[in-house]
């Protein structure tokens, strides 16, 4: 179920990691199990020739070659992971987020859309123990906010007191909310629904209840809500 662009990107990347993890894991565990069963001590067998014995330093064993092969193979796998991760993070958390478009349906922002400019970013401020969401014109809401579906939303996240962490659970994104700093995240919601926002950094007694709701609406509903509240 695609609920946002960020969630889709995450799921794809997580899938790649998990495929590789399963392959590597199965190989390693199978090898271990095979060797343990194959070479279990039988009463009849006797110790190998190079068994380490008290009284002398054991003979050294092992090839540099095998180590090299392991490292090369792993480097190759890890390179895939790095490249795919970088591709994902370049879209998900670029230094400059894309143009926000959530406001295009609002009459007051006609010009913005016409000139292809960015809508204002929304401000998110963490407090002990609630979230405040601020739209342009200092319209602010506690513990919920609304955006139209299929538009780009950019959030500037900060904190009024201690270290919080702002995460939209189903969208698979989060960023720290730190006093004196602003961290920016963006997303495009794909589906109208309510999504859970929760604080992901223990911030005191009350942290557990630091939950807010993101309500993704269809465009007309958003238009009506935004226009009706002044």
């Amino acid at each position: 179920m695609a609920v946002s662009n960020t969630q889709v990107i995450f799921d794809n990347l997580y899938g790649i990691f998990t495929y590789l993890a399963i392959i590597v894991g199965v190989i390693v565990f199978a090898l271990m199990a095979y060797l343990i069963i194959r070479y279990r001590a039988k009463n009849s067998s006797s110790d190998p020739e190079d068994t380490p014995r008290l009284g002398r330093i054991p003979t050294s064993r092992g090839h540099g070659r095998n180590v090299l092969i392991t490292v090369t193979l792993s480097t190759f796998l890890l390179a895939i992971l790095i490249i795919t991760s970088f591709a994902a993070v370049d879209t998900l958390f670029p230094n400059n987020p894309p143009n926000a478009t959530w406001c295009y349906s609002i009459a007051a922002y006609n010009q913005t859309q016409a000139t292809g400019q960015s809508c204002p970013r929304l401000d998110v401020t963490g407090h002990q123990f609630y979230w405040v969401f601020t739209y342009p014109g200092a319209r602010s809401y506690t513990n919920f906010f609304r955006v139209p579906v299929n538009t780009t939303v950019v959030l500037d996240v900060t904190s009024a007191d201690v270290f919080h962490d702002f995460g939209i659970i189903q969208f698979k994104i989060k960023t720290d909310a730190i006093k004196g700093r602003t961290n920016t995240i963006w997303f495009i919601p794909y589906k109208t629904a309510n999504y859970t926002i929760q604080c992901f950094e223990l911030c005191g007694t009350g942290h557990v209840g630091m939950i807010a709701t993101l309500n993704v609406m269809n465009v007309t509903a958003f238009q009506n809500w935004y226009g009706s509240e002044k």
Binding site: F10, F17, L81, V89
Partner: peptide, 21 residues
Amino acid sequence: VIGGITGVYLASVALDHALRG
């Protein structure tokens, strides 16, 4: 082995934005 492999997940900054915390 399991702990190490999942450490690689967390090492990916893209995944960590979801997995952190």
